[in-house]
Design a protein around this nucleic acid. Structure first.
Length: 217
DNA sequence: CACCAGGCAAGTA
DNA sequence: TACTTGCATGGT
């Protein structure tokens, strides 16, 4: 086991010892998870839950309802999550791809080979690498590591990746150094979000109290 | 008031 | 290819 592997492993252990299981993704179904994945793009989760609740209250948290709902109504329902016109369009694009490529079946999407499903997800206008990988990991239980802005911030500040590294390079840090295990990937990503929200704010990090310790130099 | 939040695509040079 | 900008609500 090389030094990089040890660091990736050690950080996970520190986080899991400190916080325990995170119970991600917070959703009642894979479908709801997928909707949340689009709505949370560059948006706080508290705003997303408001939007998800409005969809549920309207009785529309299901594939057929959102496939057929008029744009204007969908935009209204998801308004609290921000970018509502954009996201209404993105949700439609995603459902339409599932309609075209997977007979409208989430089960078929998740039964497909992960890399093939990923390619199809990335074809959707409005679905980028983080959204696609979140759907594959948390919706499909595939061993695909999810990278986000928090992951980049924490791991570049700790010097495990360069500050200018791209999504793929950061994802490889985890996928090259961890056993492919969706449960492990599930917890690890959630724990990174947890610690970053608590101690790794963009402008004012609090390294003194962070379980990952103080940054050197 | 400014800044941030579990991104992504399109425009410009 | 490498920057920049638009999208928008709600919390701190």
């Amino acid at each position: 086991m090389n030094s990089q592997q040890k660091q990736v492993e050690t950080i996970y252990q520190l986080l899991f010892e400190r916080y325990g299981p995170q119970g991600w993704w917070p959703a009642e179904s894979a479908f709801e998870m997928m909707v949340g994945a689009v709505l949370t793009q560059n948006t706080s989760w508290t705003n997303v839950t408001k939007a998800l609740e409005q969809i549920k209250a309207a009785g529309m948290m299901n594939y057929q309802s959102l496939l057929n709902v008029p744009h204007k109504l969908l935009a209204e329902l998801i308004k609290p999550s921000g970018y509502y016109n954009l996201k209404a369009e993105r949700l439609k694009n995603l459902l339409q791809m599932i309609e075209n490529s997977y007979e409208g079946s989430l089960e078929l999407l998740f039964a497909d080979e992960p890399w093939a499903a990923r390619d199809n997800l990335l074809q959707v206008k409005g679905v980028g690498p983080e959204t696609a990988d979140s759907i594959l990991l948390y919706g499909g239980k595939h061993s695909v590591f999810v990278v986000d802005a928090y992951t980049h911030r924490v791991f570049s500040r700790h010097g495990l990746v360069p500050a200018e590294c791209d999504y793929n390079e950061l994802q490889e840090l985890f996928m090259d150094n961890l056993k492919a295990d969706h449960q492990l990937f599930n917890e690890y990503h959630a724990l990174i979000v947890k610690v970053a929200k608590s101690y790794c704010k963009k402008a004012k990090p609090n390294c003194q109290e962070c379980p990952l310790g103080v940054l050197q130099e």
